[in-house]
């Protein structure tokens, strides 16, 4: 039994990333609070980062890690802008869910 379970291979990491991505997708589809939807987008970004790092190790290419670095920077900028928009919407309507935000006026 212990001989069968060797060290975790890249496939395991990719499967875990796929599962994490799917959970993030379900979260965006199910939740109505815009903040929690944002967190689910972060989950999906992390899943992709995880598969990038696993493939960088497997393929022996540092470019995967460089891409993850850029993804993190863009995710930080995206969160800042997105939370700014959410703040300006929720300041007017504190109980707004994603269903109520149907027009582009904050």
């Amino acid at each position: 039994m212990l001989a069968v379970v060797a060290t975790p291979t890249t496939t395991w990491y990719l499967l875990l990333a796929a599962l994490l991505f799917s959970i993030g997708v379900v979260g965006v589809l199910v939740r109505r609070n815009p903040l929690v939807m944002f967190m689910c987008i972060e989950l999906m970004l992390n899943a992709v980062n995880l598969s990038f790092v696993a493939l960088a190790k497997k393929l022996g290419d540092i470019g995967g890690q460089t891409t993850v670095f850029f993804v993190m920077v863009v995710a930080a900028a995206e969160v800042v802008v997105g939370l700014g928009i959410i703040v300006s919407i929720l300041r007017r309507r504190p109980t707004a869910t994603a269903d109520d935000i149907a027009e582009l006026k904050g």
Binding site: T9, T10, T11, L14, L15, A18, L19, F21, S22, I23, V25, V26, L29, L55, A56, K57, K58, L59, G60, D61, I62, G63, Q65
Partner: peptide, 29 residues
């Protein structure tokens, strides 16, 4: 739930199917 399970299944199938195509091509980490 259907979308999530379906997406996870499709991704897992693609990963398992293509696991032998990952060949080392860089200089290593």
């Amino acid at each position: 739930a259907i979308v999530g399970i379906g997406l996870a299944g499709l991704l897992a199938a693609a990963i398992v199917q293509g696991r032998d195509t990952l060949a080392r091509r860089g200089t290593g980490i």
